[in-house]
Nucleic acid binder design. Structure first.
Lengths: 333, 333
DNA sequence: CTGTTAGCGCCTTCAG
DNA sequence: CTGAAGGCGCTAACAG
């Protein structure tokens, strides 16, 4: 059994006043004689009194707690996002209640209700990859609990969101490849159905268009294809590919592997750009150029918007698309 | 303002009974006529009634919440540990309240008090690297809040802990190097003052002793040394080094860099083993052999011990040292 | 079987 | 300036 903590009436008894007076002395509400006030304050300190936030929560109908739902912790991207969120919330006196969904929508739904039960003051969520129902998210909003989506969003739900500008990120990467003279640029796509996959593909095409390069279907490969390695190999062999842009750093690494097999030199014969600035990108040889999505800033921004909504529910919803940053390393001449 | 949730007395009014009856009907305590019970249950469902855990917490003096303190999120090791912890707590109906210390003890202390204020039912903590005071941790225990240390521990505090067996991990790595014929094995040490640094060094020495190899001071380098690269270079040049064991995968990578400069072939001329099985270890060339500390299992075990302590405070403290796993990859013949 | 009462810790009226 | 009373939502003990 937990030891009983000293509470407000313990102090009241000791100083021979009522709990209300102690409350007033400690919180400054109303007038208390300076003498008693000092006495109460010093005793409180001596006894290590700390107000019970649970009682306050019950009274005020708020918990100073933010619920967070993310797919998982282990990708560097989400760790950084989490760190960004935490940097803001902890500075504002909010606690973080964290749930993972493992990209499984049924778990996401369960988590949402858990958080709602816990009476969190707001929710930040990265929705699962596969999603077809939005009632749980709608319920959060119907409950007047502010909700901010981060990294992924859906047209189905009218919550504020913070995402990364995938179109621009891809565009800047491929634009750079074109500028340094690449004319045959292969693209390895991400998983189907994700808006990020689509937007990065669009950015790729748009950059080609800008440089008046015809888009070729043969040069766009499916990253999820089980024999991706074969695909890359035959693509590199049959075309005079001089540039590559991958949906992720990990997929870019697949290109490295094949290039090494085919004795194609990176960056002299082939320039490569990945996506997400994973730690591996600075450890592989040659170091990989990539697009930084600024996950820390994404998390921080989402947290700021949420706290804003909590403290001022009337402000209009914000929809933020954060700019990306192209990082040039040795995979490019 | 948050919308008012339907509570127990809303239901009571609607069904014309008292709140206590509703409570009994919903929780099964005491006897309620089957008819009313059904009526109450169906109405509760219809109104979407969900009990307010805050009220229950106030009453029961427990919050079904676990506090967690970790240095940071971004190292893969902590992400995995976190995932391990979460896998256990979420299955047992506990929520996770997470704080980061950024390896700063003053922040760690602040976080501890925040968690104590939040009335968490237990605390899992990885203490900061630099630590010289333990009053805050003692206070957690004095408060009868179960505490489990994970990854790092201190003799100064008598809390149960779960750590990785660094001695055995290092021993198995160096033992393996000896077995494949290495006789001149360099070791790059970790940060001073960490027990892990010390224990891995001990494991290194013990393995050498087992194979009757004299320990040489010249072969042990400081990983934190700013001109580490130079040190490695001169060490590899002046000694006929044929094996290397590094405190971390990142430090092992420093050896890769120098070996490449000196045209020393890994693994033919030099066998290398790192530590921690970071993702980079499978992406660098050649893939790096390493020691897996099983962070997921560490987190899970710590969570299990904590939940045990919470539910059964009288059980004796456990002190767990988890075995490591040597992973052999292409950095070894 | 069901209602009443009391209390978890705190704060906020409302009286004095 | 300070005490008394009430209530946040819920449950447990005690009466009926």
């Amino acid at each position: 059994m937990k030891k009983k903590r000293t509470n407000i009436s313990d102090i009241a008894k000791a100083v021979q006043v009522t709990p209300s007076t102690v409350s007033r002395a400690l919180n400054g509400g109303g007038k208390v004689s300076e003498k008693k006030k000092q006495e109460i304050i010093s005793l409180a300190k001596k006894l290590g009194y700390r107000p019970n936030p649970i009682a306050k929560s019950l009274l005020e109908n708020r918990t100073n707690t933010i619920g967070l739902i993310i797919p998982e912790f282990t990708h560097h991207f989400y760790s950084r996002m989490l760190a960004g969120i935490e940097s803001i919330t902890s500075n504002s006196g909010y606690q973080l209640l964290i749930c993972t969904s493992n990209e499984d929508q049924s778990q996401e739904i369960k988590s949402i209700y858990t958080l709602l039960d816990a009476r969190v003051d707001g929710v930040i969520a990265t929705i699962s990859k596969v999603n077809d129902t939005f009632g749980h998210l709608q319920e959060v909003m119907d409950n007047d609990t502010p909700l901010v989506l981060v990294d992924r969003f859906s047209e189905e739900i009218e919550a504020p969101y913070v995402i990364s500008d995938d179109f621009q990120g891809a565009f800047s990467a491929v634009d750079h490849l074109c500028q340094i003279g690449c004319r045959k640029i292969v693209h390895i796509k991400g998983p189907d159905n994700l808006s990020t996959t689509f937007n990065r593909l669009m950015g790729y095409k748009e950059a080609l268009r800008k440089h008046e390069i015809e888009w070729e279907e043969d040069l766009v490969l499916e990253g999820s294809n089980p024999d991706l390695e074969e695909q890359i190999k035959s693509c590199l062999e049959t075309n005079l590919v001089d540039g590559a842009f991958a949906y992720s750093d990990y997929l870019a690494f697949e290109i490295y592997k094949v290039a090494s097999q085919l004795k194609i030199h990176i960056p002299d014969q082939l320039a490569v750009i990945g996506y997400a600035d994973e730690p591996i990108s600075t450890y592989i040889t040659p170091t990989l150029s990539t697009v930084n999505q600024q996950p820390f800033e994404m998390g921080a921004k989402a947290a700021q918007i949420l706290l804003n909504q909590i403290e001022n529910p009337e402000i209009p919803r914000e929809f933020v698309s954060l700019p990306t940053e192209l990082i040039i390393r040795k995979s490019i001449r």
